[in-house]
Design a protein around this nucleic acid. Sequence first.
RNA 1: GGCCCCGUCGUCUAGCGGCCCAGGACGCUGCCCUCUCAAGGCAGUAACGCCGGUUCAAAUCCGGUCGGGGCUACCA
Length: 498
Amino acid sequence: MCDRGDRNLAEPGREAMRARFAPSPTGYLHVGGARTALYNYLAVHSAGGEFILRSDDTDTERSSDEFQRDILDGMAWLGLDWDEGIERGGPHAPYQQSERLPRYQAVAESLLAQGKAYLCFATAEELDEMRRVAQSEGRPPGYDGRYRDFDPDEAQSRRAAGDHAVIRLKVPRPGETVFADLVRGEVRFDHEHVEDFVILRSNGTPTYHLASSVDDIDFEITHVIRGEDLLSSTPKHILIGEALGAAPIKYAHLSLLMGPDGKKLSKRHGDTSLRAYRDAGYLAEAMVNYLALLGWSYGEDSDIFTLEEAVGRFSLEDVQPNAAIFDNDKLEWMNGTYIRAMSDEAFADHVGPMLASAFGDLTDLQHNRLAAILPHVKERTKLLTEVPGQVRFLMSEDVEYDQGSWEKVMKAPEARAAIEDARHRLSALESWDAATIEESLRAMLDQLQLNGRKGLQPIRVAISGSSVSPPLFESMEVLGKTATLARIDISLELLTAA
RNA sequence: GGCCCCGUCGUCUAGCGGCCCAGGACGCUGCCCUCUCAAGGCAGUAACGCCGGUUCAAAUCCGGUCGGGGCUACCA
């Protein structure tokens, strides 16, 4: 790929990369934002440099502390720590745009004074009319520049007199903005399609374009890595930078994440907040791993890797420009892979909170049973949230028989005989461990000429309440002899009653 | 409508003019293993959107076309 811009990111003598993730706290951190943050992190760490976290909260109406908290928590959960920024400070503090308003105003006024921007008094009605007419005439829509050549002194006095005015950037015309996107190659925009856009609102607050561009310059950002939805706005940002005489910034626009239907991932595809995945029982490591694969490939040797390993191979130029569909099946498979790779202790730690919320404070008995069964449950878990259901039969002295399982298994002709025979043998057992239990039940199968499926499933349902459970012999061992026999008796009574 | 981006199996991707009648992973199907469910093993299914051009040779380069997506605010 020779047309994808400058790839000498780590060239000696070049300054270190400085990239930023600048979410606006107007919503929970969603998986798409998390991926953008991840790619910024990977790019910075693979090239050497600083990762900055900034809050683009100029929209005071929609921004909230709760959302900002959620974003920070999400970043921490994923392990994407930043070198400078919110809650961390740094040489360019504050990193919160709402605290930098005077700076943006000063920049806008200075651009105005230099004649690189101008005051515009057009009303909302005028603007609507402009768009309408332009549309109908098939011309590029947008502001027509009617105040561009208005006399500056007259404009100033008009504003001083109390007329509401916005400040618009004087986009060079004719003109064209061309830049080498790091993942897409050369992109060009004729200024015919870039209107003289607003940089400062009539209420004195900056627009996103101004605030973001000024911060990127002030914070000495070298690489802007963001979603493709901002690709069309890039000429505006470059133009602001040029008007300010700033060093050019490199851009990398990541494709957007799509839902299973091929449409942009959004609430219509369910809860796409990172928090929702965390709550659903996904591991941060699996999430990071999966997200990294959406638009990038680790190599043909493996799909499973750590954040650190990804850093070792990542390069922006290898990022795919095409959109990726978020595939829950693969994420789930990956999560299961990570869970199985965990130590038993780590697994117990991870499911601790959800077991506590499902069963309350644990008794010693419950605790011991969990410690014994969890390693077996771990092997068959894809989502941490499945665990309480898997161990429920060991957490209470009462069994709940699953209707479907009962119908399917206990109605079989050999069920009763198997359970009765098993009861005799088990009650005679002197030691109670999985191996002994298995030996005893195998003898039962032998005796009754039954295969494992037919002869053991009834026992499973009898003691766990379901046709699906952790391994039978181990489950029985953990349950204990007394409780096991009690459950067998209950199932026998139910069989008789029916 | 205008502008911009994108287009390899169902999905994520490898592929940078011959190594490709296209490789890996998830999914799916079948078989094996098996006390259920998982896991594991083996086998299989399945793609270069289309049309032209350049070239001895194209998934790879160019053009067009079709399809998808984004933007088009005094939101970000």
